[in-house]
């Protein structure tokens, strides 16, 4: 799915927890997320903290979309 959308010319950022699987399916811009059942959240935290965490992740995703890359890139940090 991610590959076909990118093939159509859109920059796509794949935000997911299991990076090797993302690499296997051929995503190019990859941002690691928190955990499989809650990639953009952490139920052990307060709702406010959780949202801040989510926002930081989405910011990372947008940055990835703004970044030119040569090949598969994992945006850590």
């Amino acid at each position: 799915m991610v590959k076909e959308i990118e093939r159509a010319g859109f920059p796509v950022v794949h935000m997911c927890t299991i990076i090797p699987i993302s690499q296997t399916v051929g995503a190019n811009r990859i941002v690691p997320t928190i955990a499989i059942p809650h990639p953009f959240g952490d139920p052990t935290r307060t709702p406010g903290e959780e949202k801040a965490l989510r926002r930081a992740l989405v910011e990372k995703g947008l940055k990835a979309l703004e970044t030119d890359i040569d090949g598969q890139t994992v945006f850590n940090g």
Partner: peptide, 24 residues
């Protein structure tokens, strides 16, 4: 792959510029 192509077609027609795809 077919889902991807169909979705891409719709996004193109709607004038979308970039995509965030989330997975678990």
């Amino acid at each position: 792959a077919r889902f991807g192509r169909e979705i891409a077609e719709k996004l193109r027609n709607a004038g979308v510029d970039a995509v965030i795809l989330t997975s678990t």
